[in-house]
């Protein structure tokens, strides 16, 4: 069955026809051009498809598109509307990614974490990002970049 789905994508209202069983991942990629959201497993095990729905990180590969009716969906494209964010700048400085396929999901998860907890401890940060798999980096540069963001935010608080 087809539905006319209306929601906000990266701040703009969108209207798109979807089937009842269509996943948000496929709608974002194939119908709305938000291709930073990646297919990695299809069953919420790798985190490459992570998006924010009303500020909370969600795996779009197991989310039915119809579930976001009237909600605010943000992908990496939306986060950097005004250029690279502080988190992205830290990732660039630390060469945080290699193949880069997991990067959008990591950045979305990291953004959620920092929005809730601007200066997490390293262990808090690691646990918050544990659902995002990276096969290339061994994670060390991601940790270094996030520690720098947390440290900078800590200084900013004082």
């Amino acid at each position: 069955m087809n539905h006319i789905l209306k929601f906000n994508l990266n701040g703009d209202p969108v209207e798109v026809t979807v089937k009842s069983n269509e996943k948000l991942l496929d709608v974002l990629r194939d119908k709305l051009g938000a291709v930073s959201v990646k297919f990695g497993c299809g069953v919420a095990e790798c985190g490459a498809c992570t998006v924010l729905i009303d500020g909370l990180s969600v795996r779009s590969c197991i989310t039915f598109a119809v579930e976001v009716e009237g909600k605010n969906v943000v992908t990496l494209e939306g986060l950097q509307a005004d250029g690279p964010t502080k988190i992205q700048k830290a990732f660039i400085k630390h060469n945080a990614f290699q193949c880069g396929f997991c990067a959008p999901g990591f950045i979305v998860s990291a953004t959620e974490l920092i929005s809730k907890n601007p200066s997490p401890s390293e262990e808090e940060m690691r646990h918050a990002l544990a659902g995002n798999l990276c096969r290339c980096t061994g994670y060390q540069n991601i940790v270094n970049a996030m520690n720098e963001v947390a440290e900078d935010n800590r200084k900013g608080d004082k």
Partner: peptide
Amino acid sequence: DILEKVTGTS
């Protein structure tokens, strides 16, 4: 290529 990876433009 870090900028294209981190901005999801790859």
